[in-house]
């Protein structure tokens, strides 16, 4: 599974960005191998419509889930339109966020 995480930097130890639309990067993490691809978020510097534009970035990367902080209403609609689920996490680092999410999912299953 490809998990997208809004991130302040380009490594698994980077902080999770608390704002979905304007985060500087997304890390697209492969949940099996923990290999990741950092993707620059062009929406971080856009004047308007950042939320939906960020959703488009994740859609293009083929990820169906994003771990992040706050998601605005426009971003929510766009994510829903693309069929991407947004999960709010409170973890510090990207690694913790992914591991925490996978652990939760396991117990749920």
């Amino acid at each position: 599974m490809k998990i997208a995480v809004s991130s302040q930097g380009g490594s698994l130890n980077a902080q999770v960005a608390k704002n979905f639309g304007r985060c500087p990067y997304f890390l697209i993490v492969d949940s099996e191998t923990m290999k990741f691809e950092p993707v620059y978020n062009p929406a971080s510097s856009m004047t308007g419509g950042a939320g939906p534009a960020a959703a488009r970035v994740i859609n293009e990367k083929g990820s169906k889930i994003v771990l992040t902080g706050q998601v605005g209403p426009n971003a929510m609609s766009a994510l829903a339109g693309y069929g991407i689920e947004a999960v709010t996490v409170s973890s510090d680092t990207v690694r913790e966020a992914v591991e925490g999410y996978l652990k939760n999912k396991k117990t749920e299953d």
Binding site: A43, G49, P52, N74, S77, A78, G81, Y82
Partner: peptide, 18 residues
């Protein structure tokens, strides 16, 4: 230029306020 239009799989989404 203003991020108003988004193509979803089967429809076009329009954010009019932008």
């Amino acid at each position: 230029e203003f991020n108003c239009l988004f193509v979803m799989k089967d429809r076009l989404m329009f954010f009019g306020e932008l």
